[in-house]
């Protein structure tokens, strides 16, 4: 029988491997699919898909996921080390979003951007870099496991 300790450890290992890929997915979608979209469109589908994706990624970053695990397993998976790694990721994401915002602000007089496009660039850069930094920190701490 798998107890909460084993369940938390298995989940934390999978999450450590998944987080950098999710970050890269966010960054890739920023440059790929969403780039081709019709910015400024009032399509409810487009708005719903973008908002849902961004909110799920933000929730994953802030809570560490594992929403369907037992409470005790979630507490173990989100231990002190993980919270420190997550804090590092959030810091990286915040700084990246700020710098991206500065660049968008400076470039926009010369290369006008739609508000949706500008928000997409800033949010994607912030979330993507935060997830990559968080995941890499988690992978590094798991790499030292005996």
């Amino acid at each position: 029988m798998v107890d909460d300790f084993e369940r938390a450890e298995q989940f934390a290992r999978v999450r450590a491997l998944m987080a950098p890929f999710l970050g890269l997915l966010v960054l890739t979608m920023q440059q790929g699919t969403f780039y081709a979209w019709d910015w400024g469109s009032d399509s409810l589908v487009q708005i719903f898909v973008w908002l849902s994706f961004a909110l799920v990624m933000l929730a994953l970053l802030l809570t560490g996921g594992g929403w369907f695990l037992p409470r005790r397993a979630r507490e173990l998976a989100n231990d002190e080390v993980t919270r420190a790694n997550r804090q590092r990721g959030i810091t990286v994401g915040f700084v990246t979003a700020m710098i991206t915002g500065f660049l968008v602000w400076a470039i926009s007089p010369f290369e006008p951007l739609h508000a949706q496009r500008a928000a997409n660039i800033i949010v994607s850069m912030g979330l993507g870099c935060a997830l990559v930094a968080y995941g890499m920190a988690e992978v590094a701490t798991h790499a030292g496991d005996a």
Partner: peptide, 22 residues
């Protein structure tokens, strides 16, 4: 880790000096 009620990762990282615990 089970005696303490924390994850094995916490024990491992603290023991190896990777993480300074609260």
């Amino acid at each position: 880790a089970e005696e303490m009620g924390v994850s094995r990762k916490t024990v491992n990282t603290v023991e190896n000096g990777v993480f300074s615990p609260s």
